[in-house]
Design a binder for these strands. Structure first.
Length: 443
RNA sequence: CGGAGUGUAGCUUAGCCUGGUAAAGCGCUUGCUUCGGGAGCAAGAGAUCGGAGGUUCAAAUCCUCUCACUCCGACCA
């Protein structure tokens, strides 16, 4: 993408409304604009990051056997009356009335809708297990939206729903999701920590939340320091029940709790091994048995010919929240530092002197070569001063920066620097740049 | 929902207390000079001062109501 043609309205100064680091950087980097409290428009750069994260989520979820669907944002109140949550959910649920005075709601989650789909379509234990997910917008009318996209009212979430014949099978599904969530977050360049959690309004008896550490996190976390270095297997066989159970066991062996469940009296971790930090909740998984299937009569016939209610779990990852969360966890004074896996572009190719024919032709050639190698490049071909371009490149935080300037071009060199490692700036031969960049991106 | 604040040009803000021709920096447009870390000079465009009432000869400024946004707390992917 040529920056001269790209819609990328960056800001030099910070809008007053933004108090949180990630919110400021997202506004300044032209990723989002606020439309109303807790409601945002995503501009091209932000949209790309959202897509990247969704792709990671999708890829890893599909490996577990889950299937992507998409359900409506507006749901009929009837379904929620059936489950009993219509009255329980409270003011966070945005209730709407259509022209026929029929009560609707903007879905804050979709247990009811998905249960309705499944109960109408699945009649036999032979069709189980079934795991359906969507990546879609939710609305929760938070009393107090804040922290930019991290606590919006409208947010993009991956919500998945598992349907199993019995508790044992449902627990296996839960464990697969547990492992899948670790993998997803790791693939996004994050260090996840699973915490035992309260089940909240969704209900149920088994729940973990996944948090990532960041100074500005909303919750206080107490966990064994092992969590910051524990390995997540690269090769996971989601069909192997023992293998999956073992990973979950490893990852739940050590103490980890948010402040609501932390009890210094019962916490056995010695002080020097206890990590006390702030965290951002980015995922939450629940097993809640037949909480919905019973009132909504979602049952299948069993092998012996009877009927049994489905055992269910729900599995959420805050996709839009992750954008803010990743920035909270990865930035410096100058701007964002994107992990390679979610960066909106892999490479910032900067033509320091647009208009200079030698620079232009070197930049254009390399841009075309990189692009046709399948690499996402943002070419800064704007007629701006060098300082402006470099400062904006810092702000945008693309992982690898290639700088073409008149001096370098004359000497046949190009400057290379990683955003995450600015002191390691070096010149390489212009002729090696393509090969270097392709290798670097692959790495 | 309780408490505290803020609304003036695209962004950051001054002016408000003590009423009297709406101001600056950044950004934007044009020209010249500059040109490897957010340039300089010059000339422009851009604001019914969140909205509605009221007081007054006169309201960004004072009063009343209202809307929006932000922050702290309780709640949440």
């Amino acid at each position: 993408m040529r920056q001269s043609l790209y819609f990328l309205p960056t800001l030099k100064e910070v809008p007053t409304e933004a108090q949180t680091v990630s919110h400021r950087l997202m506004l300044r980097a032209g990723m989002v604009r606020q439309v109303a409290a807790g409601i945002y428009s995503w501009l091209p750069l932000g949209q790309r990051v959202l897509d990247k994260i969704a792709d990671h989520v999708r890829a890893e979820q599909v490996k577990t056997g889950a299937m992507e669907i998409i359900m409506p944002t507006l749901q009929p109140a009837e379904l929620w009356q059936e489950s009993g949550r219509y009255d329980d959910y409270g003011k966070e649920m945005l209730r709407i009335t259509d022209r026929h005075d029929r009560p609707l709601l903007y879905g804050p989650t979709a247990e009811e809708v998905v249960t309705d789909i499944v109960r109408n379509s699945i009649k036999s234990y032979r069709s189980l297990p079934l795991n359906l997910f969507q990546i879609h917008w939710k609305f929760r009318d938070e009393v107090r939206p804040r922290f930019g996209v991290m606590r919006g009212r409208e947010f993009l979430m991956k919500d998945g729903y598992g349907f199993d014949l019995d508790e044992a099978s449902a627990r296996f599904t839960y464990q697969k999701m547990f492992v899948s969530y670790l993998r997803i977050l790791r693939n996004l360049g994050l260090n996840p920590i699973p915490l035992r959690a309260d089940t909240g309004p969704i209900g149920g008896d088994l729940s973990h939340e996944f948090i990532i550490l960041a100074e500005t996190g909303e919750s206080q976390v107490y966990c064994h320091q092992n969590y910051t270095s524990r390995a997540i297997p690269d090769a996971v066989d989601y069909d192997d029940q023992d293998h999956i159970a073992q990973i979950v066991k490893d990852w739940t062996a050590d103490y980890a709790a948010a402040d609501d469940l932390h009890n210094p009296a019962t916490c056995k971790v010695p002080d020097h091994e206890l990590l006390t930090a702030r965290g951002i909740e980015v995922g939450h998984i629940f097993y809640f048995g037949t909480k919905y299937s019973t009132p909504m009569k979602a049952a299948v016939s069993t092998e012996s010919g009877g009927l049994t209610n489905l055992h269910m779990g729900s599995y959420g990852i805050g996709v839009s929240r992750l954008v803010g969360g990743i920035i909270e966890a990865s930035h410096d004074d100058l701007g964002i530092i994107w992990p390679k896996s979610v960066a909106p572009f892999q490479i910032a190719l900067i033509n320091l002197k647009a208009g200079d024919s030698a620079c232009d032709s070197a930049a254009n050639l390399l841009y075309k070569q990189l692009t046709s190698s399948g690499i996402e490049v943002l070419l800064d071909d704007r007629d701006e001063r060098a300082g402006v371009k470099l400062a904006e490149a810092d702000l945008l935080g693309l992982p690898l920066r290639l700088v073409i300037g008149p001096k370098g071009v004359a000497a046949g060199t190009i400057e290379v620097v990683e955003r995450a490692n600015p002191s390691n700036k070096r010149e390489i031969a212009l002729s090696d740049a393509l090969g270097f960049a392709v290798e670097w991106v692959k790495r």
